[in-house]
Amino acid sequence: MKNLNIVIVEEDPKVVENLCEILEYLNHQVVGEASNTKDALRLIEERNPNFLIINICVNAKSDGILLGRKVKEDYDIPFIFTSSDADDTELIHKAIEEKPYGFVLKPYSIKDIDTAIQIAFNQFEELSRLEFNLLSKPSRELTHIFLKVNSKLININLKDILWIESKGDYAVFKTENDSFIIHSTMKNIETKLSNSQFLKVHRSFIINLDKIVNIEDSNLLIKDKIIPISRGNKDSLLRSIHML
Rank of each mutant, 00 (worst) to 15 (best):
K2D: 10
E24I: 02
K14L: 11
K94P: 08
S136L: 00
Y25L: 09
D12C: 13
P138W: 01
N219I: 13
S218V: 11
G102H: 12
V149K: 03
D39G: 05
H202V: 14
I53W: 03
I241P: 13
D235R: 10
D112L: 02
G68D: 00
L66P: 10
I53G: 04
V16I: 15
D63N: 13
E165Y: 11
V104S: 06
L135F: 07
N188I: 08
I229F: 03
E46D: 11
V16G: 01
I156R: 06
L52R: 07
S218W: 06
A171Q: 03
H202N: 15
D12I: 10
T37G: 12
E97G: 06
L105Q: 05
G68K: 04
I53A: 09
F205W: 09
R239H: 10
T191N: 07
P138Y: 05
I54C: 06
V7C: 04
K152N: 14
K14E: 12
I92T: 07
S62H: 08
L193G: 08
T89R: 14
L162D: 04
K167M: 13
K94E: 15
I8K: 02
T185N: 08
R69P: 07
D12W: 07
L43F: 14
L244D: 09
I181W: 07
I113Q: 02
P78G: 02
A120K: 03
K94M: 08
E90S: 14
V15N: 10
D160V: 03
G102F: 12
Q29V: 09
I96D: 04
L244Y: 05
L193P: 12
V15P: 02
K14F: 06
I77S: 10
N18K: 15
K200Q: 05
F146K: 15
S35F: 02
E24T: 03
N59T: 13
R129N: 14
A34Q: 02
E216G: 08
D74H: 11
F132M: 12
E176S: 08
G102T: 09
F51W: 10
E21F: 11
E125L: 12
R239V: 01
H183D: 05
I227L: 14
L67I: 06
R140H: 10
E126K: 09
G232T: 05
F79Y: 11
T89H: 14
F51R: 09
K211F: 00
S179D: 15
T175I: 08
L52P: 00
K225E: 14
S151C: 08
S194K: 12
D169W: 13
N195W: 00
F146L: 11
